[in-house]
């Protein structure tokens, strides 16, 4: 039998892959791993395609029992993983056999551990992806987070690198006070000059309302420029005529609670959207917790593209090291 038994689902563990891309224009966010780098490394460590489906846990990991010989890897946030009560090294391929139980303790760094299993999690594809989009209940395992007693089918395992481990310099460090780069724009014209400067200088604290849809922040108040309400926009100064919200975009309803939209993003609406976190830095939010502090640093498009290329080169080094 090729499956994984879920003894305990943890707080919010979902099946994810690289995402359901290409449908944003019709209102379908990509979902997919919130920390794509850690996710890709996990798959590479077990000999999977980087796009294979794996598990994303949040804060409290699941308890899983394996039913055959597999190779697993735990990456991302460090939640004290154990296999039959023995410590599981992170960022390393670990062989498991039938009856082995993987559990997690209290999370020490980051927010989301990833668990890849050789062969991948074999849930049906929906619109080209196995990612779970829980908000409307599609994809993944029955469109929801894992629950106690679930059984997940696994795909056929290929050849995994034996005892592969990620070189230490390629493992990301997750801090609790982080800087993310953002391109200012879209509706930033709605902010006063002081408010824009304040946005960039404020240490923003992540609130409890921080999930796969978006991270809500608190720490300052941003003032809007006086205006005459345009046709089609709501009456609140934070309303504009509806627009598409890019992934990573920062909207400021009310002016005092910026929301950074992430993998399960709302794809459009009428809130003023003042900046967009660059794609290379979205992973940072995947490992940021409620209570952590975020600083935004303004960059231009060229720097954003350089950062994306740099991230690609880093992944190339991982592929080389683990092949």
């Amino acid at each position: 039998m090729s499956s994984v038994k879920v003894h305990n689902g943890g707080l919010s563990t979902t099946v994810q892959d690289l995402g359901r891309t290409g449908l944003y224009a019709i209102g379908m966010p990509p979902s997919g791993a919130m920390d794509q780098y850690s996710f890709r490394v996990a798959n590479l460590l077990v000999g999977n395609e980087e796009s294979a489906a794996a598990l994303e846990a949040t804060y409290i990991g699941p308890t899983l029992e394996f039913t055959d010989e597999r190779v697993i890897a735990v990456t991302g946030g460090d939640a004290a993983a154990t296999l039959n009560d023995e410590t599981v090294p992170m960022w390393t391929s670990v062989p498991v056999k039938a009856g082995d139980v993987l559990s997690f303790g209290m999370i020490a760094t980051g927010a989301r551990p990833y668990i890849a299993i050789s062969g991948g999690v074999d849930v049906p594809e929906y619109l080209g992806s196995r990612s779970t989009y829980t908000l409307i209940g599609l994809g993944g395992h029955e469109g929801r987070k894992l629950a106690d007693g679930d059984v997940l089918a696994l795909g056929e395992a290929g050849a995994a690198p034996s005892n592969g481990a990620l070189p230490a310099d390629l493992a990301p460090q997750f801090g609790t006070d982080v800087e993310v780069r953002a391109v200012v724009g879209l509706c930033s014209y709605r902010l006063t000059e002081e408010a824009l400067a304040s946005f960039l200088n404020t240490p923003w604290r992540i609130t409890k309302d921080a999930d796969r849809v978006g991270y809500r922040l608190r720490g300052g108040t941003l003032d809007f420029v006086e205006r005459e309400q345009p046709f089609g926009a709501g009456s609140d100064p934070a309303n504009v005529v509806d627009l598409g919200y890019p992934l990573g975009s920062v909207q400021v309803p009310g002016g005092d609670e910026p929301i950074v939209l992430l993998g399960d993003a709302v794809t459009g609406g009428g809130y003023v959207t003042i900046a967009t976190v660059i794609s290379a830095d979205r992973d940072i939010f995947g490992q940021a917790r409620s209570g952590d502090v975020v600083h935004f640093r303004e960059v231009g498009i060229e720097e954003a593209l350089d950062a994306r290329r740099e991230q690609q080169r880093r992944l190339d080094r991982v592929r080389e090291a683990l092949s």
Binding site: Y59, I60, K208, D209, A210, D211, S290
Partner: peptide, 8 residues
Amino acid sequence: IEVMKSFT
């Protein structure tokens, strides 16, 4: 404990 709209 409330986080991510769920209560544990």
